[in-house]
Design a protein around this nucleic acid. Structure first.
Lengths: 122, 122
DNA sequence: CTAAACCTTGCCGTTGACGTGAAGGTCAAG
DNA sequence: CTTGACCTTCACGTCAACGGCAAGGTTTAG
């Protein structure tokens, strides 16, 4: 498939896919015309990328992690086991983020409580 | 207290505090010299700001919410109850973020499982 | 054969929360 | 009174993940 079709199926834009390639996250084949050619499984790969991005990982971290993800032959796999540390680091980062978010949500909850509770009590 | 001391106690930088003021999050008094003067409770206010920022709220949203937070007299309070909608919106945003982070963490967990499991199994 | 609808590379623009000097006023110690 | 550590206000720089546009090649439908 070509870039627009992949973008459509993965729910993103051609521009983003070119950016991912520039960052080493995708390695599409090239047709004689120069057009990029993607395998069907690239859809899953892109979805993984988006998920990890939305989790706050940057493209560098994803580039290290992505080769380890199953159903992904798009990128060659370096020595995987050595990445366990990096994976753990990112996992901790995510957990920390979740904790902070939960704390912030608790603050908002207190405010919402106070706000809706004080409706008819001058 | 002056700006550097507040920055130290709140774990941030003078630059950030000036930025918060520029965004309407802080309203320190001014000495005759032009120096900013902060009340001790500003430490808590700044901590709230950082927490909400780390939760993905932008300074505009925080500026709306901050006046509602107890122990905060630094900023004048607009009509608070009307903000319940905005609070709920942000709350939902945070919940969505938490869900995404949890999903991403689950992906990492699978990778870590697979990685450490495949240690001695060629 | 031609127009529409793709695709390519290249490069500048955007957004948010600051970092980083620059140029100058202020304050406490000696 | 002078030195050094503060402070002030500009004002430009940064970083990440793209958006958008230009100038040109390609493919496909009619």
């Amino acid at each position: 498939m070509r870039i627009s079709e992949l973008a459509r199926q993965a729910g993103t834009t051609p521009r983003a896919l070119r950016y991912y390639e520039e960052q080493g996250l995708l390695r599409p084949a090239r047709l004689a015309s120069g057009y990029r050619h993607y395998e069907p499984q690239a859809v899953g790969t892109v979805r993984h990328i988006q998920l990890l991005l939305s989790a706050g990982l940057n493209t560098t971290a994803i580039a290290e992690i992505l080769p380890c993800i199953p159903d992904d032959v798009t990128v060659l796999a370096p020595t995987c086991p050595e990445l366990l540390d990096a994976l753990a680091v990112e996992r901790n980062r995510i957990t920390t983020s979740i904790d902070r978010l939960a704390a912030a949500r608790a603050v908002l909850d207190r405010l919402i409580q106070a706000g809706s509770g004080a409706r008819d009590q001058p």
